[in-house]
């Protein structure tokens, strides 16, 4: 189950001055640096989170470049090479149909990461625009759109995702749609809360008086100010989406063979679990590393970005 973290209160990011130990360079006077600079420095000092970022980047490179290093074709069946153990020839061994598991795992990482990243981006962008619009206009539009959010918030997301996958047919596009539909409402609510406070500020009033178009106000004044919340949202929903993709594909309600993903590989590994456990362990370990790295990275980002967590 997931426990939602409380949205933290709005702080004017532009005016934060950094604590002395970060900004005092011997022999100079204290100077204030920007919020993003300060957060960046703080993040760089968090070695664990930084290590996780490196791990993730490495994994992405392996997933992209790995198949080039190996001569094996991920979809080529080999009748005489079934269920081989990991070796110099086949780094992760071969599966029930004799396909090379290293290249298949690389493809699986690509699909799983792509699904998670795209679904997260769609949900965050849609949720942010939705929340900004409702907070900006207020009034009856705000309360109408709020009712819609309440309905979406009260949906049991797993059930809805599964029904959508059944009705619209399995596949990557359906899955992106289903994952977006069930996860945008939280972001919208947070964006609304922050923009409601921003809207009262003088510079936004000035922008409105100067007839600045709405999209410009959103991009120049709203988005930079709610950016830290959005980054945290992204950090939380990527692991959730990786889980969702893997679990649904595992049940046969997601991505379908011959396409592959970590969920498909885990499901194939389950069949061979007792005879050839490495076929289960390898995709499981890869998935765990990815999610763990994202979780630690998310914690590190929260510590760096959230003014409340300043130590």
């Amino acid at each position: 189950m997931d426990i939602k973290t409380k949205p933290f209160s709005f702080v004017n990011h532009r005016s934060i001055t950094i604590q002395p130990e970060l900004s005092v360079i011997p022999g100079t006077t204290t100077r204030s640096i920007g919020y993003w600079r300060a957060s960046g420095r703080k993040f760089l000092r968090d070695r664990l989170a930084l290590a996780c970022a490196v791990v993730l980047v490495t994994l992405v490179f392996i997933a992209l470049l790995g198949p080039l290093l190996s001569a094996a074709d991920p979809n080529q069946l080999h009748v005489n090479l079934q269920n081989l153990a990991p070796s110099a020839e086949h780094w992760f061994g071969t599966d029930r149909l004799g396909r090379d598991l290293f290249t298949r795992t690389c493809l699986g990482i690509r699909v799983s990461l792509a699904v998670a990243l795209v679904a997260t981006t769609l949900a965050i962008v849609f949720g942010t625009v939705y929340g900004m619009v409702m907070a900006f206009f207020g009034g009856w539009l705000d309360s109408l759109l709020m009712r819609v959010i309440e309905i979406f918030n009260s949906l049991p997301s797993l059930l809805v995702t599964m029904i959508i996958m059944t009705v619209l047919g399995n596949g990557i596009n359906t899955m992106l749609f289903a994952l977006t539909i069930t996860s945008w409402s939280g972001t919208a609510r947070q964006a609304r809360g922050l923009v409601l406070q921003l809207r009262k500020s003088d510079y936004v009033t000035a922008a409105i008086m100067l007839n600045t178009p709405l999209w410009k106000i959103m991009l120049k004044h709203f988005v930079p100010n709610i950016m830290s919340i959005l980054i945290l949202d992204i950090g939380q929903s990527i692991p959730a989406n990786i889980f969702a993709e893997a679990s649904l594909s595992f049940l046969g309600l997601g991505i379908q063979a011959p396409n592959t993903s970590l969920g498909i590989l885990i499901q194939a590994g389950q069949d061979q679990m007792l005879q050839h456990p490495s076929q289960l362990y390898i995709p499981v370990i890869v998935l765990t590393i990815i999610v763990l790295a994202f979780n630690i990275l998310g914690d590190g980002l929260r510590d760096a970005l959230d003014p409340k967590f300043k130590k």
Binding site: P239, F243, A246, S247, F250, I266, G269, Q270, M273, L280, V284, L287, T288, V291, L292, N295
Partner: peptide
């Protein structure tokens, strides 16, 4: 970081 599905397996 390990979903119940994978823990179960």
């Amino acid at each position: 970081s390990v979903p119940s599905l994978i823990l179960g397996l």
